[in-house]
Design a protein around this nucleic acid. Structure first.
Lengths: 214, 214
DNA sequence: CGCACAATTGATCACGATCAAAACCAGTGG
DNA sequence: CCACTGGTTTTGATCGTGATCAATTGTGCG
């Protein structure tokens, strides 16, 4: 399911030359696109992790979503991107012009899948964050988050968290201190292992999921 | 912009008889559709307010969104509805079969608008809740919520909140007590007037928006 | 090395959850 | 009209948790 970017192109209707770029690369920390920018293309993440960032009125940074390999992001709202997409890790991606997507939409036999393949990740991300933040109790929130992230990563057990704790804090609407203390608790329980400040390894996912529902 | 349900129907291609029902009516408290139910039709709210409800693993009730007149809701995810839609007030709505929407998608000149007319409200709702709950401080959260709701209602000032405080609490992930106390504060400030327990009137929206950004 | 930033730890404090109870309101039926 | 019921709102008291302030350590990088 989902949106296939190049594989489906119908031969007799070639795409503009620059509509698809293979394996473009962005180093971590840099942006794929910016909030408010005119949305001309969709981005398919082929490897790495991306975070969606919004700045509230007073300049407060909010991480509103994480996106993973396979996700298609960048659907415009009112003609422009709704958030800034920053590479958390090094990211490999491909792009597709919005016009082409529109065209494909009209051609395809299953618009539902095309639509949801493209819009699914963003809708899902917003929805997920709203559910996660809804949880009360820092430990439960973070545990639920870990379970969610593990589900998105390829490796289900023994995964290493790709994003720094500050991002997790901004995403879950907690302070870095609280996030850190929660991780210490998880470490003492044996649910995770903290190897080098940066590298947090999920060891016992089952225990984490049990904590998630409080 | 947005999805027009009946006005645009092309004459020479009549819709199935039951694909559109004018002015169906649901009394408050009842549901339009249920989470998990097979999604066969879209709902366009013509009057009234609807809340989206989800139940977490342990049966905890979560209000994940509010929808207003003009919104089209009920887009399927994986073939079924993603939440239960309950009428907050008496609601008048019309429906359109998903198949017809799909068909229209293929015909229309501007798929983007068709897509976002239909999916916009739900994406927007998730996004909004995630931003609102991200706010810290009960007063700020509730003020931001009030500003948001006023923007959605026809009357901008002097609006009366359509939903009970319990729903607001469930939506903002607060307790009813906290919501009540926040309203008392707002009342003492003169920002709102509480007329009959149920009827909360927004008086000074400007003051509220200033509180929203803390 | 030294710089900048993330992570860690500790101490204090405010805010919102929680528990408990009363007041208020709407709807129903006697 | 009144009594009864159920649900929502209101108020009060206490308690726990996460925010906040402050300072140190750790890590990656120029």
């Amino acid at each position: 399911m989902g949106l296939e970017l190049a594989e489906n192109v119908i031969p007799f209707r070639p795409e503009p030359a620059d509509s698809r770029i293979l394996s473009t690369h962005v180093p971590f920390g840099h942006a794929l696109f910016w909030e408010g920018e005119e949305a001309r293309q969709l981005f398919k993440i082929e490897a790495g992790v991306v975070r969606g960032v919004n700045f509230s009125a007073e300049g407060e940074r909010q991480v509103t979503g994480f996106f993973f390999a396979g996700d298609v992001i960048g659907l415009p709202s009112g003609g422009q991107y709704r958030y800034t997409a920053e590479a958390v890790t090094d990211v490999r991606y491909s792009t597709k012009a919005v016009d082409c997507w529109t065209e494909e939409l009209r051609r395809t036999a299953h618009p539902d899948e095309t639509v949801f393949g493209a819009i699914g990740p963003e809708l899902e991300a917003s929805y997920m964050r709203s559910l996660l933040i809804g949880q009360q109790g820092a430990l439960a929130r973070i545990s639920a988050f870990l379970a969610y992230v593990c589900g998105q990563l390829d490796e289900r057990e023994d995964a290493i968290l790709p994003m720094p704790q500050t991002d997790i804090a901004a995403y879950l609407s907690l302070t870095p201190e609280t996030v850190c203390r929660a991780f210490r608790t998880l470490k003492e329980t044996g649910a995770v292992r903290i190897e080098k400040h940066d590298r947090i390894r999920i060891v016992d996912l089952a225990r984490i999921t049990s904590l998630a529902t409080h």
